[in-house]
C-alpha cells in the first residue's frame, strides 16, 4: 500500500468542512494519519480553465510538483480537485510544446515535475488498497435500517474512467454495503447537479437538483450519500426553494460517505461534522437509535 499526502482543496476548508473532519477521523481509525500537503493552492476548478489554459496548468502543476516532492500519492476527496489534477497531469505529461513550457516554469521556480505522482480518491483507496475486509472489521454499529442512495455526480467518473464506469459506478455502493447500510439502487447517480452554475442560475439549478432529490425520495431513501463537496452543497441549498417551486416535499439529509463510515465504526457523531448539516437530522437520528448496536 502506498502512502498518501492529503490535498483538501478549498471546499473542504469551507462549505465542506465536515468532509475534511470525517475523512481525517476515519482514516485515523484505520491506522492512517493523513498529512496535509504543505502550502497547497487551489486547483482552479471550472473557473480557471474557462479563462486561461497556461495559468490553469501552472497552478495545478504546482500542486502536483509539491506533492511529488513528498514522495507520496495525492489523496484528493473533492471530485473537482481530483479531476483537475488528473487532467493537468495528463496535459503536463503529453510531451507537447505547451506542456514543456509549463514544466520549465515550474522547474525554474524550484519545483521540477517528473511525473512521479498519482492522484487518487479516498473511495478508491478504501475499496482497492485498504480493502473491504479491514473496513468491515471496524464496523461496530448496525445501520442496516438506514436506507441510502449513493450519488457520485460527474467529475469523479468523467471524463476519466479510471475510477469507475462513467454512467453507472458501483464503488461507493460496495463500500456502503460493506458497512451494512441498506443501499438502494439510484438511477440518477451520475446525473449533473449543475456544479458551479447552481448557486448563480436559479432556474436550471433547481430543476437539476429536483430530479436528483425526487428520485431519492421515490426510492424511499433516508439520506443521500455523496463524495463531492459541491454536489452536497447544491443538494442542500436547493431543497427549500424546490419544495416551494414544485410544491413537493423533497427534504432529505445529504452526507459525505466518510461521515456514515465513521458512524458505523462507532466514532462519536460530534467528531464527524454531523452538526454542520443544513437539513434537520432529527428523524435520521431517531432511526439510527432504533437500529441499536451490532
Amino acid at each position: 500500500m502506498s502512502e498518501y499526502i492529503y490535498y483538501p482543496g478549498c471546499s473542504l476548508k469551507t462549505s465542506g468542512r465536515h468532509y475534511d473532519e470525517s475523512i481525517i477521523t476515519v482514516f485515523k481509525e484505520l491506522g492512517i494519519e493523513l498529512k496535509e500537503l504543505d502550502d497547497w493552492n487551489c486547483c482552479g476548478a471550472t473557473a480557471s480553465p474557462s479563462v486561461d489554459e497556461a495559468k490553469t496548468s501552472a497552478i495545478t502543476g504546482r500542486v502536483l510538483a509539491l506533492a511529488e516532492k513528498s514522495g507520496k500519492d495525492i489523496l484528493a476527496p473533492c471530485a473537482a480537485c481530483y479531476m483537475s489534477l488528473k487532467k493537468s497531469k495528463k496535459f503536463l505529461e503529453n510531451g507537447s510544446q505547451k506542456a514543456e513550457k509549463i514544466l520549465k516554469a515550474l522547474e525554474d521556480a524550484g519545483l521540477p515535475y517528473k511525473a512521479n505522482v498519482n492522484v487518487k480518491h479516498p473511495v478508491e483507496i478504501l475499496t482497492k488498497e485498504i480493502g473491504m475486509g479491514k473496513i468491515k472489521a471496524k464496523v461496530i454499529r448496525n445501520l442496516n435500517n438506514i436506507k441510502i442512495v449513493n450519488y457520485y455526480g460527474c467529475q469523479i467518473v468523467r471524463p476519466f474512467t479510471e475510477f469507475d464506469d462513467p454512467d453507472y459506478p458501483t464503488q461507493m455502493d460496495d463500500l456502503m454495503d460493506a458497512l451494512g447500510l441498506d443501499v438502494v439502487d439510484y438511477s440518477a447517480k451520475t446525473k449533473c447537479c449543475g456544479g458551479a452554475l447552481t448557486a448563480n442560475l436559479e432556474e436550471p439549478g433547481l430543476r437539476l437538483n429536483y430530479i436528483l432529490l425526487k428520485e431519492a425520495k421515490r426510492k424511499g431513501a433516508d439520506a443521500i450519500v455523496t463524495l463531492c463537496p459541491l454536489c452536497l452543497f447544491n443538494l442542500e441549498i436547493t431543497q427549500r426553494k424546490i419544495t416551494k417551486k414544485y410544491k413537493e416535499e423533497v427534504k432529505i439529509p445529504v452526507f459525505f460517505f466518510s461521515q456514515l463510515m465513521g458512524l458505523s465504526m462507532g466514532i462519536p457523531k460530534e467528531d464527524l461534522g454531523f452538526s454542520r448539516s443544513m437539513i434537520p437530522l432529527k428523524k435520521f437520528w431517531e432511526k439510527v437509535e432504533n437500529g441499536g448496536s451490532k
Binding site: 495559468k55 496548468s57 505547451k98 513550457k101 520549465k104
Partner: peptide, 14 residues
C-alpha cells in the same frame, strides 16, 4: 512569490 514567478513565466511564454 513562487506562485507569481511561475505564473509570470508561463504568461511570457504564451
Amino acid at each position: 512569490k513562487q506562485l507569481r514567478q511561475i505564473l509570470k513565466a508561463v504568461k511570457e511564454e504564451s
